[in-house]
Amino acid sequence: MNILPWHKGNWEELFTVTEKLPHALVLYGPCNSGIDIFTLEASKSLVCRNHNETEVYCNTCQDCNWFDSNSHPDIFFVGATRIDEGTSSNNISIDLIRELKVFFELTPHQQHGKKVAVIFDAHRMNLSSSNALLKILEEPPGESIIILTTSDLSKLLPTIKSRSRLISFSNPNLEEAKEYLGVANKQELLPFINLYAGNPLALLNDHLNYPLLAEIIHCLQQGKKFDSSNINPNWFVNGFPWLINLIQKWAYEILLSKLTHQQFYFPAEQSKIADLASMANISNLLRFQKKLNDLKLYASSPINKEINLDIIFIDYRKIFI
């Protein structure tokens, strides 16, 4: 079973008595918290014919084989795991919910089996698709389970939430995150864990950015001596907001070190940040933070990123005396 260690309590809550499973579940929590992993494991367990209290799924029956090949007749995925053909937007359309209704009208392929539908990122449903789903929930088909996942519970209709069991998911604590990276043989990534809000999955998913992070951090370490000619066009590859967010955290780290002699986001750069903090003018540093906050509001707009970044680093150099 591929359940993340910090989700074992959620699994026990859901599967202690499978006969009492509701017709609808809403699994909600932060992005990259592993909800989709949990949902796939739960879906496979629900359709496995050999599922029991001691063995989540057998991994050998026809149902498990069908599931692994994404061809199980009693599974219907909408969203992140299966690309919705014919959709041109990020919204979940009413047509997909109509397909879901047709899916539930068919009987399960095995006697007493369950039909399972999963709507990933259910907050992407518009009002029409939400109301169509609500009609299904008001008269749920027998032997069926609908699982909705979301990172924004507030965007689901209250009537959908009231007809579902809500299960909250969280990110791991710092010790759990460190242990997970250790098991994954990625201990070298520990210095970056706070940069990703303690989320090891987000950290691992972003592994291709480590050389880029190292390059940008090396330039930020130059402080007053930073040369704008060192700005690399690749810095924009993840979008301007991503770059602003990184610079913002670096500036916050200098501020934190200046005021408290502590650091949070970049523990591996403790000595260098302390040196920069000792040279930083607190008024200029606070002004720089405010400019970053203001820029972040329109960083996703069609602006000249290169010019704005040049201005940022002119102001960055002014921090240091």
Rank of each mutant, 00 (worst) to 15 (best):
E85F: 03
D63R: 15
A202P: 06
D206Y: 11
L295S: 03
I75K: 06
K8L: 09
H261E: 11
D315T: 08
K272A: 14
Q111E: 15
D206M: 08
N131I: 01
K20S: 11
K249F: 00
S154D: 12
Q222L: 13
E55W: 07
H7C: 00
T16Y: 12
E13W: 12
C219V: 13
T149L: 00
W242V: 07
E85L: 12
W235S: 03
F226I: 01
L127Y: 08
S130Q: 09
N304T: 03
I217T: 07
Y252C: 13
S93T: 15
D74I: 06
L201K: 03
F236G: 08
Q222K: 15
P211Q: 09
S301K: 14
F320M: 01
I145S: 00
E139L: 07
D227T: 03
S228L: 11
N126D: 13
D74F: 08
R49P: 04
V118R: 05
A274G: 07
E215L: 04
N281W: 02
E253N: 03
P158F: 09
L189V: 04
H218Q: 14
G182C: 07
E176H: 00
L96W: 03
D95L: 13
P200G: 01
W235A: 05
I312C: 08
Y28D: 04
I321D: 12
L189D: 04
E306H: 12
Q111H: 11
E188N: 12
K225I: 07
I321M: 04
N126Y: 05
G182Q: 13
W235H: 05
A197F: 10
V78G: 06
E306G: 09
E99Q: 15
S45F: 05
Q111F: 11
F76L: 06
S162G: 05
G182P: 00
I193K: 02
S170I: 05
V102W: 07
N2G: 12
V47G: 01
Q222V: 06
H109N: 11
A122G: 08
T60L: 12
E179L: 11
F169E: 03
P108C: 02
S228E: 11
E188H: 11
H207G: 09
